[in-house]
């Protein structure tokens, strides 16, 4: 069955007819062509699909598109200010916090959520807060460094 969904994505209102069973991640990827949000598993464990819904980090594979009706959705594509990377993105670049790039959008979205709740997290706090995100490339050392550096930069700016 088709249903109409409307929401705000990265500040722009969007509206579409979608299958009622469509997941939010598929709505973002296939309908809106926002393919920065990735699908790395089918059991909601990898966190590659992490986005923000009404300011809260959510795994977009665990939500139907219709559940986001009327919501304010933010994806990785909306994080930078035009050509200028967000301080958290810049911190990932400066600290080599990514390799293949597949988990990266989810990591950055989770990082922003972590810092929102805890503006100057310790290393251990970051490691624990990354519970929901898997990375197979970096061994996390540089991701943790990136998030701590990004948090500092965000606090400073």
């Amino acid at each position: 069955m088709s249903v109409n969904v409307s929401m705000t994505v990265n500040g722009k209102p969007v509206s579409a007819e979608v299958e009622d069973e469509m997941l939010l991640v598929n709505f973002l990827r296939d309908h809106l062509r926002l393919t920065g949000t990735h699908v790395g598993c089918d059991t909601s464990q990898c966190g590659a699909c992490t986005i923000h819904v009404d300011g809260v980090a959510v795994k977009s594979c665990t939500m139907l598109a219709v559940q986001a009706e009327g919501s304010n959705v933010a994806t990785i594509e909306g994080v930078s200010d035009g050509e200028t990377l967000h301080p958290m993105q810049q911190a990932f670049k400066d600290n080599h916090g990514l390799q293949c790039g597949f988990c990266t959008p989810g990591m950055v979205m989770s990082a922003l959520d972590i810092v929102k709740n805890n503006p100057s997290p310790t290393e251990q706090e970051v490691r624990e807060a990354l519970e929901g995100n898997l990375c197979r490339c970096t061994g996390y050392t540089n991701i943790v460094r990136s998030i701590i550096a990004g948090a500092k930069e965000m606090e400073a700016s």
């Binding site: 926002l34 393919t35 920065g36 949000t37 990735h38 994806t75 990785i76 594509e77 994080v79 930078s80 990377l85 993105q89 990932f92 670049k93 990514l98 790039g101 597949f102 990266t104 959008p105 950055v108």
Partner: peptide, 12 residues
Amino acid sequence: EDSRFLRGHGNY
């Protein structure tokens, strides 16, 4: 390559 990956502009 990081700039495109960090913006969600990778092309997988």
